[in-house]
Design a binder for these strands. Structure first.
Length: 190
DNA sequence: TGCCTGATGTTCT
DNA sequence: GAACATCAGGCAC
């Protein structure tokens, strides 16, 4: 239900984040379909020092200030991409970082994209971008349409969701805006 | 099993 | 010129 998703995404990032858990991400590459279920996310907002949007809109972060439901892809540490779902009203810089997904379809293709045998393939923000072949070209993409689509699935109960502080950041470490599915093996780190 | 480090380049100060 | 929302491999215990 696209309208429901749009309505959900227009809310604040810290409210949207837990409700994106369980949503399905579908990627189309040539004739291949890849899909996965979101199991771990983090929220970032412009009033949050750890967010890229904290210092205002720049060439890099302008997507975060755009309409909700688009993809914000950033390049980090010289070699990795990470992807976010833009949330909140237009003009407000907020997004939800997708940190881990559980592969549903095309796991063999994801593994090939990652080029690492044996390791977990989608249990980290840069890993899932590699697995889904997401790069700068998809920055600003509308997630309501292919080649990358986001769809809500079932509603989860609060007991299935764990809320903690975010990881991998150097500022605002005490803000509890990381959410993941309890007991899911694809979560990056518990 | 767990800590430490190198790879690598974009962005902002 | 430094920081960085990361990852994988190496080495020590």
């Amino acid at each position: 239900m696209r309208a429901d998703l749009q309505q959900l995404l227009s809310g604040p990032a810290d409210e949207v984040a837990p409700r994106l858990l369980g949503a399905i991400l579908t990627r189309k590459i040539k004739n291949q379909i890849l899909s996965g279920r979101i199991v771990e996310v983090e929220a970032y907002d412009q009033n949050d020092v750890a967010s890229h949007s904290y210092r205002g809109e720049t060439e890099r972060t302008k997507v975060m200030f755009g309409p909700a439901g688009h993809l914000y892809v950033y390049f980090t540490y010289g070699m990795y991409y990470c992807c976010n779902v833009v949330t909140g009203p237009e003009g407000h810089g907020a997004a939800v970082l997708i940190r881990a997904v559980e592969p549903l379809e095309g796991e063999d293709v994801m593994s090939a994209n990652r080029g690492v045998a044996g390791a977990n393939i989608t249990n980290g923000p840069a890993k899932l971008c590699q697995a889904f072949a997401i790069d700068r070209k998809l920055n600003g993409h509308d997630l309501a349409s292919m080649p990358l689509k986001l769809e809500l699935s079932q509603t989860l109960s609060n007991e299935q969701i764990v809320q903690t502080t975010r990881i991998g950041i150097s500022q605002a470490k005490d803000v509890p805006w990381r959410f993941y599915l309890k007991g899911n093996p694809w979560v990056s780190k518990v």
